[in-house]
Computed example of a mutant assay.
Amino acid sequence: MSRTLVVTNDFPPRAGGIQSFVYGLIARRPPASVVVYAPRWVGSAAFDLRQPYPVVRHPTSLMLPTPAVARRAAGLVAEFGCDTVVFGAAAPLGLLAPRMREAGVRRVVMVTHGHEAGWAGIPAGRRVLARIGADADVVTYLGEYTRRRLARVIAADKLVRLAPGVDTGVFHPGAGGGRVRAELGLGERPVVVCLSRLVPRKGQDTLLRAWPGVVEDVPGAVLLIVGGGPYRRTLERLARPMGGSVRITGPVPGAELPGYLAAGDVFAMPCRTRLGGVDVEGLGIVYLEASASGLPVVAGSSGGAPDAVLSGETGLVVDGTRPDEVAAALVGLLKDPAGARAMGERGREWAAREWSWDLAASRFARLLEPAETP
């Protein structure tokens, strides 16, 4: 059996969308076919013991394309007899590809996310991506937006779509939303939930600026913001005048996230592009997890986020810089619960049909085979 070395900065137990994506792909490979090289993180030793494949940890929490990392990765290629290498995020570790070929690797697969699309918008980033693309056999993209951005510097015949999957057995309407509502004292109040890392791009501040207008039209509505991150203090300051109509939970364990989604009536994350296009949403897997949970979604128009919504069918796409537009979308959904439920039902059907992990795993498996055309 051929063996694949996965070199990635993004791997559990560190939380995040890219980490979940990379882990989900690996978890569906035969255990004897995979070796992972990733940074050390809090709790990584216990996590690694539970995996059926080897996980080799770098001694620090970040890996860069340095000679030391290159030597370690090349050593793993030799030690485990790997003939394929997958870079869990193409930039910047994909710069190690030439060294991997010298070590004996015959196939190089680069997985891209939102940040590579952002890099494609600046000259220095384009130069790095061009080098990475030149050394790859395959460069994956999430959706049409990221494909267009990457195609500026990477040959079109190397670009292949590979998006994350959604586990509809984990994310579903009965995943424990009633328990979460009871714990938070929400009762039967209308709930808009936003589950994401707390950073400016995700648009939680726009939700908070929109919220007084929502509560004016839908008395008793609650905004539930779930997650941790550096923007938390700013968001708590913005929320303070709104009292009990806003709840900011902070981070919650991964196993409890489906319950928090299922506790909502509407999911909203009005993401926006920042820093001249460098900070952009690649896709937004949480929109699809919310759809699988039976919720209509309100997504920002940043980058590839609209690829995760069938606008008008499974949710709405809004300008994440405009609180009035966000408020109007939320009010419309909250005041039409039957229509919102119908959107959520269509979203769950779409997630199960088009975004299953079985589809993603099958596509990934084909990319690893040198004899086949992706």
Score class of each variant (00 low, 15 high):
residue 258 P to T: 04
residue 52 P to T: 03
residue 113 H to C: 08
residue 214 V to D: 04
residue 35 V to S: 05
residue 214 V to G: 03
residue 318 V to N: 10
residue 179 R to Y: 01
residue 195 L to T: 00
residue 371 A to K: 15
residue 192 V to D: 05
residue 88 G to E: 05
residue 74 A to P: 02
residue 254 G to I: 04
residue 7 V to T: 02
residue 222 V to N: 04
residue 206 T to F: 01
residue 47 F to L: 11
residue 214 V to H: 08
residue 318 V to P: 02
residue 314 T to H: 01
residue 157 D to R: 07
residue 176 G to Y: 04
residue 168 T to P: 14
residue 297 V to T: 12
residue 299 A to R: 12
residue 198 L to R: 06
residue 339 G to Q: 10
residue 134 A to Q: 12
residue 324 D to K: 09
residue 72 R to N: 08
residue 325 E to N: 01
residue 84 T to M: 01
residue 271 C to F: 09
residue 329 A to Q: 12
residue 123 P to T: 07
residue 86 V to Q: 07
residue 206 T to R: 08
residue 280 V to Y: 07
residue 79 E to F: 00
residue 25 L to F: 02
residue 77 V to G: 14
residue 335 K to W: 03
residue 80 F to I: 01
residue 350 W to A: 14
residue 72 R to K: 14
residue 359 L to T: 01
residue 57 R to I: 13
residue 51 Q to L: 13
residue 362 S to G: 14
residue 224 L to D: 00
residue 178 G to P: 03
residue 212 P to L: 07
residue 316 L to Y: 00
residue 49 L to K: 02
residue 263 A to I: 03
residue 135 D to C: 09
residue 194 C to P: 03
residue 141 Y to K: 09
residue 135 D to W: 04
residue 206 T to K: 14
residue 146 T to Y: 09
residue 86 V to A: 10
residue 151 A to T: 11
residue 150 L to R: 07
residue 151 A to S: 14
residue 161 R to W: 00
residue 147 R to F: 12
residue 252 V to G: 05
residue 26 I to Y: 05
residue 349 E to N: 03
residue 115 H to E: 13
residue 211 W to T: 03
residue 135 D to I: 00
residue 252 V to E: 12
residue 269 M to E: 13
residue 292 A to V: 11
residue 269 M to L: 14
residue 102 E to D: 15
residue 184 L to G: 07
residue 364 F to K: 04
residue 19 Q to Y: 10
residue 223 L to E: 09
residue 101 R to Q: 05
residue 264 G to R: 01
residue 88 G to L: 04
residue 78 A to Y: 12
residue 147 R to W: 09
residue 348 R to M: 07
residue 345 E to P: 05
residue 263 A to K: 02
residue 291 S to K: 11
residue 181 R to H: 07
residue 130 A to R: 15
residue 14 R to H: 08
residue 330 L to F: 06
residue 357 W to E: 03
residue 367 L to E: 12
residue 331 V to M: 05
residue 259 G to V: 00
residue 210 A to F: 10
residue 37 Y to C: 05
residue 104 G to A: 08
residue 223 L to Q: 06
residue 5 L to Q: 03
residue 94 G to W: 06
residue 10 D to I: 09
residue 261 L to F: 15
residue 15 A to H: 14
residue 260 Y to K: 13
residue 215 V to N: 01
residue 303 G to Q: 02
residue 150 L to A: 13
residue 369 E to W: 00
residue 352 A to Y: 06
residue 272 R to E: 00
residue 163 A to H: 13
residue 333 L to V: 06
residue 173 P to Q: 04
residue 38 A to L: 05
residue 35 V to D: 12
residue 107 R to L: 08
residue 160 V to T: 13
residue 163 A to T: 09
residue 217 D to G: 06
residue 103 A to T: 04
residue 285 I to K: 14
residue 67 P to Q: 12
residue 212 P to D: 07
residue 324 D to H: 06
residue 325 E to K: 14
residue 235 L to W: 02
residue 150 L to V: 11
residue 129 L to E: 10
residue 275 L to T: 06
residue 148 R to W: 06
residue 169 G to D: 10
residue 214 V to A: 10
residue 210 A to S: 13
residue 189 R to A: 15
residue 288 L to Y: 11
residue 114 G to Q: 08
residue 30 P to E: 13
residue 33 S to N: 09
residue 288 L to I: 15
residue 110 M to D: 05
